[in-house]
Design a protein around this nucleic acid. Structure first.
Length: 100
DNA sequence: CAGTTGACTATCT
DNA sequence: TAGATAGCCAACT
């Protein structure tokens, strides 16, 4: 089952507290192919209300909703139940990352 | 230099 | 649940 994260959550983990808007701007800049050869799963990021932060009618919106559903995430309209699908790293997972 | 503008959020009504 | 409001901050006008 896929999981999603909010802009604020990503900003915090990236050491940029309070800069959720920057995360959104950054993701918006990423070309289709990814960044420097690496794919970027920008579609797994949504806003704190659990909704896709794109115009309902846009191609980008439909693209994101499709990608999320492909990963098993239930999207109703633009909304996702964060209670069920928000990524919540546990203490063990975070501690292991310190060894890099 | 002053305003505007966002793939944002938290807090009130 | 939905709208208004006020912070946020880098990039543009």
């Amino acid at each position: 089952m896929g999981k999603v994260a909010t802009y604020g959550q990503i900003a915090d983990l990236a050491g940029l507290p309070g800069r959720a808007r920057l995360v959104g701007k950054a993701l918006g800049q990423v070309p289709d192919g990814g960044w420097q050869g690496k794919p970027v799963p920008w579609f797994r990021v949504i806003n704190s209300q659990g909704k896709i932060s794109l115009p309902l009618a846009s191609d980008a919106f439909n693209r994101q909703r499709t990608m999320l559903q492909d990963e098993g995430i239930v999207v109703i309209g633009a909304k996702i139940r964060l209670q069920d699908f928000q990524w919540q790293p546990d203490i063990t997972e975070l501690l292991f990352k310190l060894s890099y």
